[in-house]
């Protein structure tokens, strides 16, 4: 089984971290993973993305033509990556920011008002973790406990006070999609 993802959004929306936590969680489940960031000369407010592959086999190409999952946190990401999504693939839309619909009808669209849910929890910055919760609940690419332990690893001791908030966000994302 192989899952490939493109996660994309404004700089600051935490898409790189979202990808790293996915990859870290995959590794903790003894899967093969790669994470590759766009690292162009992006400006503040520009769009950044990363490609993640999680697989039972060794990962050959870390570059993906047609991902199984596209996560669009803003409109430019939707415009850029919706056409590349695999047929029957999952398109996650952050509807707090994206005020339009997907154009294809051969894909599965999951709408998540990630900013609003994060705001309700008390911190807009965890919108990425809300989205991550939705992703793992729908795709079942990695388990929730792996994501929590990956998060713990990423936050380290310095960020341990933020762990509870982030877990809450992940759980809210899971709940939103009925997981």
């Amino acid at each position: 089984m192989t899952f490939s993802f493109i996660l994309s959004g404004f700089g600051g929306q935490g898409v790189m971290l979202m990808g790293q936590i996915l990859a870290q969680a995959g590794m903790q489940e003894a899967k093969n993973v790669t994470w590759f960031p766009s690292y162009g000369p992006e400006m503040r407010g520009g769009t950044a993305n990363c490609t993640v592959v999680i697989s039972d086999e060794p990962v050959a190409s870390p570059i993906v033509d047609s991902p199984d999952v596209v996560v669009a946190m803003n409109i430019p990401s939707l415009l850029k990556f919706e056409p590349r999504l695999k047929k029957n693939g999952f398109l996650f839309l952050n509807t707090s920011v994206i005020d339009r619909k997907a154009t294809r009808n051969d894909i599965r669209v999951i709408e998540v008002p990630a900013n609003e849910i994060a705001d309700r929890i008390g911190n807009l910055k965890v919108a990425n973790m809300v989205m991550l919760g939705a992703i793992i609940a729908v795709t079942k690419c990695v388990r929730k406990d792996s994501v929590v332990s990956a998060l713990q690893y990423k936050l380290g001791e310095k960020g341990s006070s933020l762990l509870k908030l982030n877990i809450e966000a992940i759980e809210a994302g899971i709940k939103h999609v009925g997981g």
């Binding site: 790293q20 994470w35 590759f36 960031p37 690292y39 990962v59 870390p62 570059i63």
Partner: peptide, 10 residues
């Protein structure tokens, strides 16, 4: 190359 340099892998 830049890809190998920037990518993360276990």
């Amino acid at each position: 190359d830049g890809l190998l340099g920037q990518m993360m892998e276990p």
